[in-house]
Amino acid sequence: MSESAERPGPPPGQRSRGPVVLRRAQVQSGTTDQRLLDSRGPSDWVHTDPWRVLRIQSEFVEGFGLLAELPKAVSVFGSARTGPDHPEYEIARRLGSALAVAGFAVITGGGPGAMEAANRGACEAGGVSVGLGIELPFEQSLNHWVDIGINFRYFFARKTMFVKYAQAFVILPGGFGTLDETFEALTLVQTQKVTRFPVILFGSAYWGGLIDWLRSTVREAGKIGEHDLDLLHVTDDVDDAVGHILAAESERSAQAQAERAAVADRPSP
């Protein structure tokens, strides 16, 4: 008897689907190719988790491909509910303009309000204006001041783009979404997933209560470290915000040069 004839076949009621083994009641009729090519079959498969993995992958590929050639950039967050007549709108517009003049692309969530204002300022100053939108139950299209835009299905893919392609965050007054991005950034900096990454809260009157609570309650209870609040820079001045980012960039550049020099001076084995 040949070697191949001696190999036992799969147990009764077992089927392999690529690297996956299914047995008993989990065995499905037909093959993957049959279900792909048979257009008469049900369409529920496009809503399954394995198919969602491909959608998630496509969002990362699309985002990386679109943003890979961006110049240095700053992500600006703020409320979509900030009206054009509100003072914060004009502040965001001036901030976007100042960042563009300093050589930074401006990345926002692409929506209305403070996001629109920052994109507008960057666009008017001749800079690169980027919007990373998100699919929501209510309609919120990318604002008209976005030059490079992409809409995401998944918040976590979108968040990755905000951090990966930015050298800093500037956070204007906002709601839950803005707070979410703020603490996401702080967590990444605190755990050193990103380094030398300024997180700037713009508007001391708005953010003062949060800072007081973090200092008097969270830090006093030992839930954050003694110097964790140093990760935040609070300001009311556009020039101060941009200057803080430029200083961090200069420090980051000097550190990178020092690291390259150290590698170059290392003796060969």
Rank of each mutant, 00 (worst) to 15 (best):
E116D: 02
S2W: 12
G243C: 04
D147W: 00
T178K: 13
G63Y: 09
P269K: 00
H144R: 14
E184D: 15
F202P: 10
G126E: 03
V189S: 12
A262K: 04
L54H: 03
S43R: 06
L99E: 07
K164V: 04
V53K: 00
S29H: 10
Q28S: 10
Q167A: 12
Y165G: 05
E62Y: 04
G78N: 10
F152A: 02
L229E: 13
S4W: 11
T82E: 06
F162L: 09
A185E: 08
E6L: 15
F77L: 02
S97V: 03
A264K: 01
G41F: 02
L99Y: 08
D180N: 13
S75G: 02
G149A: 12
D230M: 13
I200G: 00
W51M: 12
G174K: 10
G131S: 06
G9Y: 02
V163E: 05
S97Q: 13
A254Q: 10
V130D: 07
A98C: 05
G222T: 11
I150K: 14
A247L: 15
P84G: 07
E259A: 09
D180A: 10
V189N: 05
V61F: 11
S39K: 13
M1F: 08
G121W: 03
K164Q: 14
V234Y: 02
Q14F: 15
L214V: 06
S4G: 00
R219F: 02
G18I: 05
A73Y: 05
G13P: 06
E249D: 02
S4E: 15
V238D: 07
E181Q: 15
H244K: 15
G96V: 00
G127V: 03
S204Q: 13
L22K: 13
A114M: 03
T235Y: 00
V128D: 01
T195C: 06
A125D: 07
R93K: 11
V61E: 14
G175P: 04
E90R: 14
M1N: 06
T48K: 09
L66E: 01
G149W: 00
K164Y: 13
G225N: 09
R215N: 14
E135L: 06
V76Q: 11
A264H: 01
I211G: 01
P50C: 08
E181G: 12
P269E: 11
G127I: 05
A98V: 03
V53P: 00
L201W: 11
Q34I: 00
I56K: 01
K72T: 09
A68V: 10
L142H: 10
E181T: 14
V46P: 01
L37C: 09
E220K: 15
L188N: 05
S39D: 09
S253E: 14
S204T: 15
L214I: 08
F155L: 15
G13A: 03
V194I: 14
A92S: 14
T32A: 13
G65Q: 14
I148C: 07
E135N: 07
G96P: 01
G109W: 01
G222N: 09
R196V: 01
S79I: 09
T31W: 00
P137Q: 08
D239V: 06
E249H: 07
T195G: 08
V170R: 15
G126H: 02
A80P: 01
E88H: 04
V76R: 07
A254S: 11
G111P: 07
W207M: 11
L136D: 08
G209Q: 11
L142S: 08
F183K: 03
T187V: 07
